[in-house]
């Protein structure tokens, strides 16, 4: 493995994290190409290990992937640098967009565009729920998928707050053996 400098690491993560749209998977694919295939900073096995661990790390998976892969390259400093260089510029864009919608939200044309964007957001959230659940129909089995996702929804509708629902799901996952590959 060739040793990457902090500047090189920051450059690669800055580009991948802030110029790739579409969420975590496309960004991790770009980083795989950069770090494994092109620059040979990580082996395919190391990439696979970090990818797998990122999926079981709480929070946003792709951020855990950034921290883990950069940590393998140059320790904690690199991990912090990778996470910040991927998050901060995008966070500034998010703040600017939120400010703009608050500031000019009362203008008729902003209202028209904003109203349609809010409706689209409903579709986005529904898609997010579906895309989270759909892969498990094959991997976890229909019964497990329906019971866990449907049960969580039913408990939430009954007024149970999310933390106990998630704790119950974790317990069910621990006890309920079967196909387990996510």
């Amino acid at each position: 493995m060739s040793k990457a400098s902090l500047t090189e690491i920051a450059g690669v993560f800055l580009r991948a994290g802030n110029f790739t749209f579409g969420g975590g998977d496309p960004t991790m694919a770009v980083l795989q190409r950069e770090m494994v295939n092109r620059r040979k900073w990580l082996s395919a096995e190391q990439y696979g290990l970090v990818y797998g661990l990122a999926r079981v790390t709480p929070g946003t998976n792709v951020l855990a992937f950034y921290a883990g892969s950069a940590w393998l390259l140059r320790g904690v400093k690199a991990a912090a640098l990778a996470v910040l260089s991927t998050c901060l510029p995008s966070a500034v864009v998010v703040v600017w967009l939120t400010y703009s919608l608050e500031r000019w939200g009362s203008l008729a044309w902003v209202k028209a565009a904003g109203g349609a964007i809010m409706a689209a957001a409903v579709g986005m959230i529904a898609a997010s729920a579906w895309l989270l659940i759909a892969p498990f129909f094959g991997k976890a089995g229909l019964a497990k998928t329906v019971v866990l996702a449907g049960g969580a929804a039913a408990l939430a509708i009954a007024g149970v707050t999310p933390i106990p629902v998630l704790a119950l799901a974790a317990l069910a996952g621990f006890l309920w053996k079967g196909t387990a590959q996510a």
Partner: peptide
């Protein structure tokens, strides 16, 4: 299994 179960419950929530 635990990650899978929590992810499925998250989808329901």
């Amino acid at each position: 299994r635990v990650t899978q179960a929590v992810t499925l419950a998250s989808g329901g929530l």
